[in-house]
Every structure is written in C-alpha cells, then in structure tokens.
Amino acid sequence: MPTATTEITVRGASPMVDVPEGYSWMGCDDFEREAPRRRVYVPQFWMDKYPVTNDDYAVFVAETQTPAPSYWINGAAPEGYGDHPVMVSWRNAEAYARWAGKRLPTEAEWEKAAGGAQGHVFPWGDHFDADRALTWETGAVTGTRSEPVTARPQGASPYGCEQMVGLVEEWVDDVYRGYSGSGYDSIGYTQGYRVLRGGSWIFSQTHARITYRCFEEPDLSDEHFWGLGGPSFRCASSVAPQPELRA
C-alpha cells in the first residue's frame, strides 16, 4: 500500500530523487573499515540529485549572515564556480540543511542512493570508468580540481543521483565509528569525527567505491579547501519536496 507523503516547503535548488523504502546492501568485506557487508532496511526518503553548489550556498549565506567560505572572493564564489560544489565544514553543511528544511543523509541513506540497493561497487556498476567521475585517474594529468555538478550525467546512480563519487567528498550525518560486528578497531573511531563519502578528485578509484568511508572533524578548517578540495554535501529529506524540485 502506498504511503501518503506530507508535502512541506523544502528549499534548495537541487532537484530531489525519490528513494523507495526497502533493503539495501551496506559495507564491503574486502576492507576492514567497511566490513561486514550486510543488508540494512532504509525507509523511503528524498535525496538531492546534486551536491549543494556555491550559488545554492550563497542564498543561505545572504539570508543567515553565515560567514562565506574563505576561498570565496569578496563574499562571492570565484568567477565561474557558481555551479560547482560548495566546500564547507560539517557544521555549516548541517546548518544549511536545516535552513533548507532538509537534513544531512545518514550513511546508510547515502550508500543506498549511490547504488547500494543494487549492490554496485560504483554508482553506475561494478567496473571503474574514468569518464563517469572526476577522480585522480584524471586529475593527476589534467589538474582538474572541480567542475559543475551537472557535468557527469553518465555517472548517475540507479536512482538518478549524480556526482556521488569523485569530484568532492560529501559529509553525511553519522559520527565516524566502527560498524557493529566488524571486530576491527581504529583510533579514529573514538574522536567524534563525521563520516565523509564518495572520495574526490584527489583520490583514486579505491575511494570512489560506494562503500568507502573517510572522516574529518566536524569543525574542519577551510584553510586547504581551495588547494586540496574540501568536503561538500547534499541534503536528504523524509518529506516530499515541492513538486518543481522532484527529479
């Protein structure tokens, strides 16, 4: 029986895709920090199709007087970067999501939206393809550190989320801890870090797997965001976005 969804005002420029309720794969047994691979139930939710852009974030900055990222110039994104992902701390990502009437996705939601329901290694399937995501396999030679969020439709996940891997890492809501039942321990699990997903232009295909996990402190300084690429994020919602934002 279809569940009625209550529609409320959910802001933000990205279209959202509908991820149906159901079981998904999560984790990978080949890597200690990703094990064990198991089935997880994820309720229905909506996920931003794209990472939040500098232009999206500028509306939030203007409305809330949140300080602009330090790589912006005179309070605005560098020329030509309006439709590129914004790079911010977890703290600011979470504040933006709340302002937009949304929230950060959980780690399980992120992985499901990226192809976990289908058990993929990468959003598009099981074989790496340097054309479908901006990773080090390309960046090492071209020096490309950023691109528009709409630049890789060929890298879409089965639910239609784009740029899930490569380009920029993405904050999710979860605190970085070991998965239960893994039997593996890391000093990083005790630090209150937040989880980063999807790898980025500076990382190889190892990090573009949908099960890959990284982490950073939630108040991460943006000192090196311009040179190294900083984390971005996309928003999720348990309630339906306005009709014009449905992908």
Partner: peptide
Amino acid sequence: FYTNEYARGSFRRGALPEFTGYDGA
C-alpha cells in the same frame, strides 16, 4: 594523508614526474 587502502602492496597510482604534492597533504 591517505587511508589504508593505498597502503596495500598492490596499490598503484600515477603522478606527473614533476609532481611534488600539495600544501596540507
């Protein structure tokens, strides 16, 4: 700077011969 997947004995990646890394990395 990289998580342990890069530390596997079979892992390889390339960089231009003039590459010297990055500030902060």
